[in-house]
């Protein structure tokens, strides 16, 4: 018996066996959906007066503390800015933006900050359009942008992220 015949027979046997019992999983999707936990929702608190007072004091202290801390906190990457692309990758030694935006040249990103965020600012005069891109982590590892709204498949079935510019309202960049 040839090697590939044996491998084929293993596969066929398992396929047949699964098919023979497939009535067991006929309604599996319904059972799974019923058993799914809810995604952790935000904590719901009914504020009482003492709590409101405590919150207000905390807010004032935080506000004053913000001045005291100075620029250290505000120097973090401005990831909410649509002109900034960010990637959280704490263990990376280097991260570059690579894509149509850079003519597929590696553009090193700033970072990481203390939360492991890498970031890069897009040019202010970016022409409207669709731009494919991704991040090259540690020189060889291709990583997509989890914040992108569109993706396309590319070489080796890897994924390019797509930046639609200008972003429509409510979209991440």
């Amino acid at each position: 018996m040839h090697e590939h015949e044996l491998e084929q027979l293993i596969k066929e046997t398992i396929v047949q066996r699964a098919q023979a019992h497939q009535d067991r999983i006929a309604d599996l999707e319904y059972r799974v959906v019923d058993a799914l936990p809810d995604r952790p929702a935000a904590l719901e608190l009914r504020p009482t007066w003492p709590m409101r007072l405590a919150l207000a004091t905390a807010a004032i202290l935080l506000f004053l503390g913000g001045f005291w801390l100075g620029g250290t906190l505000s120097d973090g990457p401005p990831c909410a800015d649509p002109y900034v692309l960010c990637l959280v990758y704490p263990n990376a030694k280097s991260v570059s933006l690579v894509g149509q935006l850079t003519h597929w040249e590696r553009q090193p990103m700033h970072g990481p900050d203390r939360h492991g965020i890498w970031w890069i600012r897009l040019p202010r005069d970016l022409e409207p359009g669709r731009y494919e891109y991704g991040f090259m982590v540690d020189e060889y590892h291709w990583v997509h942008d989890p914040r992108a709204r569109e993706f396309v498949h590319t070489f080796d079935n890897k994924i390019n992220s797509v930046l639609i510019w200008p972003p429509s309202q409510g979209d991440a960049p």
Binding site: V15, A18, H21, R24, I25, L28, E29, V32, V33, L36
Partner: peptide, 15 residues
């Protein structure tokens, strides 16, 4: 949406 994923993969996962 997850139910749809289960539907697509249930036979191979069961296998």
């Amino acid at each position: 949406a997850w139910g749809e994923i289960v539907k697509r993969y249930k036979i191979s996962v069961f296998g």
